[in-house]
């Protein structure tokens, strides 16, 4: 089984760096982006990504907008929203737009990894299905 490729999108560089190190340590391939634009550019540039971890609150293109763009261009890529907002509205909105799940920051690393694996599993399933239909 190939390593799961994760794209971590957050404007907080320190957070991105540390989480990248921790996820890498847990046998995940991590691509980083510090803004929504950068994430989209990297995806357009052909980066192979299974799961995108997307911060909701970012300057410029915010998490919800980025999610919308990603889902439009790459429907099979699963997105996990990271939110500082304790509002259900954001989460529900994200789910409606096709996000796999949403987690509250700061989140437990083990929980994050688990969610990533679940997302990857779902992606694998959805990739098989359209082929058969």
């Amino acid at each position: 089984m190939t390593r799961t490729a994760v794209m971590l999108v957050d404007d907080e560089v320190a957070f991105v760096n540390t989480v990248t190190k921790r996820l890498s340590k847990r046998n995940l391939h991590v691509i980083t982006a510090n803004s929504g634009y950068e994430a989209l550019e990297k995806l357009d540039g052909g980066a192979a990504v299974d799961v995108v971890i997307l911060d909701v609150k970012m300057p410029g293109l915010d998490g919800i907008e980025t999610l919308r763009e990603i889902k439009k261009a790459y429907p099979t890529i699963e997105v996990i929203m990271l939110t500082g907002h304790a509002t259900v509205e954001n989460g529900i909105q994200g789910m409606k737009l096709g996000a796999f799940d949403y987690l509250m920051k700061p989140c437990d690393i083990e929980q994050l990894v688990e969610t990533i694996h679940e997302a990857k599993k779902k992606k694998a399933q959805s990739e098989h299905r359209p082929g058969k239909e």
Partner: peptide, 11 residues
């Protein structure tokens, strides 16, 4: 404060 705390936790 949420973001710095998140970073502290991650670090």
């Amino acid at each position: 404060i949420n973001n710095p705390v998140a970073i502290i936790v991650e670090e």
